[in-house]
Design a protein around this nucleic acid. Sequence first.
DNA 1: CGAGTTTGACCAGCGC
DNA 2: GCGCTGGTCAAACTCG
Length: 198
Amino acid sequence: MEEAVIKIGCTNRSSELVGPREGSTPTQPSDDHKTVSNRLISTVYSGPTIVDIQKALFATGSYASVEPGNICRGVGKEREMNKGESKYTLKMKCNGNGVADDGYRWRKYGQKIIKNNPNRRSYYKCSPRCGAKKQVEISLEDPTLIITYEGLYLHFSFPNFFSGQSHADSPAGKKLKTREEEKPHKLDDRQKQYGPVP
DNA sequence: CGAGTTTGACCAGCGC
DNA sequence: GCGCTGGTCAAACTCG
């Protein structure tokens, strides 16, 4: 089992990127990034690729960048590593609502208060139940969303991953946007859920 | 009414 | 063996 750590700068509110490499434009993933990520994906992961998530985040107003130096082998708990499952972690700057819209549809199935971290970790499964999972938590030291993807995504319900277009026009995208972004009281709940967003 | 969220309970792995 | 911790389940609840 191997895990990759990617840092993503989410530019919904802040123009600050998390460690974009020099020479790479903040508007599109560079070829180097694609090469590295594709190589990584081809060897460790057969679900949604990092490039796919890059595209989705880019299409939804966020920018994904892959830092080869942050692609770690064997990072994570050994218990998870011993499962022999593919997993990779994304780090992204918190945006206004503290959520990361990666274009997939996720269904929350639990949350836990993690030791040494006042922010709760949330657990999501793929809504159409394909086995894909992700964990979302806020880093203790900085306002960074840590998203851990796990498992295989066996379908692609959003066009983002192929066309690069925003899912806002798709029915599912509308529903996702409605639930995630257009309900102020829900945002309050989410802030309660994730903790205060700086 | 269906889909998603919340939340307490349960289970399994790990360290002591 | 026991306690702690993280991950998952499932019933109740909310919302469109």
